[in-house]
Nucleic acid binder design. Sequence first.
DNA 1: AGCGAGTCTGTAACACTGTTACACCGCCCG
DNA 2: CGGGCGGTGTAACAGTGTTACAGACTCGCT
Lengths: 223, 223
Amino acid sequence: MQETEIGEPMSSQPSSPKRALTRDAVLDAAAAMVKKDGPRALTMRKLAAELGTAVTSIYWHVGNRESLLEALVERTVTDLGEIRAQGRTPASRIVSVTRALRAQLRGHPHLVAMVHERGLTERMFQPATQALVHEVHAAGLRGTRAADVVRSLLFQVVGFVLVERNRERAPVQYPGDESLWDEATAEHDPALAKGLTGPPDPERLFLLSVRAMVDGLLGPAPR
Amino acid sequence: MQETEIGEPMSSQPSSPKRALTRDAVLDAAAAMVKKDGPRALTMRKLAAELGTAVTSIYWHVGNRESLLEALVERTVTDLGEIRAQGRTPASRIVSVTRALRAQLRGHPHLVAMVHERGLTERMFQPATQALVHEVHAAGLRGTRAADVVRSLLFQVVGFVLVERNRERAPVQYPGDESLWDEATAEHDPALAKGLTGPPDPERLFLLSVRAMVDGLLGPAPR
DNA sequence: AGCGAGTCTGTAACACTGTTACACCGCCCG
DNA sequence: CGGGCGGTGTAACAGTGTTACAGACTCGCT
């Protein structure tokens, strides 16, 4: 792989047939493909075809497929930027951080799965963790107790988004939702059966569970 | 694919060279391979070699790879069995259900990822959902409120296990944990820095967050 | 006994994947 | 002018899922 950026060799045309290939151009094209059809659809040959070049050029610029995906993840993660808390009470500020984090993740749908598969979770959530640490401190918690709270919240948000994405990707559940909740299994609570049938409202569910968890975590002393 | 079970053709030897191949034998071998090296290591050719047969026989018995994995998931899910709650207070009984669910999932490490990738989450958690519905009812909640609570808890457990598995699979985080939390980023709280460095104790963290969430969910009225 | 049908297996191929050995081309520098 | 370096292209290798097709084997019927 080359280390430094290269200058354009000869032609002065900005984007025409014989524009020199750069690492960034490869990453851009790869990012576009991943954004459109997911990481699985990114094959080295298709990428080369998209760029109008040969496979080996791709390899020269990015090493191999794994490095390419890694670079992609890295780039998106650093582009995410930091997270600012909003609200007045510590609890509401914490909730706002989790909402911002979830929004960031949902803004890059494929990223979540990619980061998940590569085990880069910690790295990715550093900014959010930072913000959470600050707010938890502001709420008066210190030391291991504070660390536990932060970690619980991070697990909660990440897990929620993972499950949420899963549901979106698999539109038809098997067997169908409706067959699962009849009179008996719902214990004669039709409203509950209705509530458990069909897709949940993720926004509402997320707020509900995060608020519950924050209340539970900030409230009483640990048992 | 054949529909009915077949009898043994001729030989009376139980497991020797020319034992007829059955769908169950294929599933067993596949399950063993997945259990040992994960779903990715299951290739049709390796599976055929393991069984001492040809690839096409596998295809005849199970259709294709996707169906094979699906059948595997299906079989393990139905084998999981139901979940019984333990404890006296509704809160502790709910917590016990979530713990049992997590234990089930952790008992079949690869299953979680497979179910996740196939979007069979709902199907898989039917027994746990059932138990949770019962306990939430016992706690005095009904209708949509109860449904929300159940769903929040399921999301929580599944998400937690997903994140937890992720951490286990990727032993070396990048960059290393220790470099992330110095004096400044930890806001001069060394105990917190220590708490956030290195792998968490999942058992403790799980209990903590589930209890917090249960407390928050069962406690005050929804806002 | 013959024969056909259904069940199952093996050979060989197709299209596709990531990856690489190797030849080549064009530019810049000495 | 010549050599090296940066970058590209051709063609191959090994491995993947999948399937068309030709058989083998067993059973049941005539």
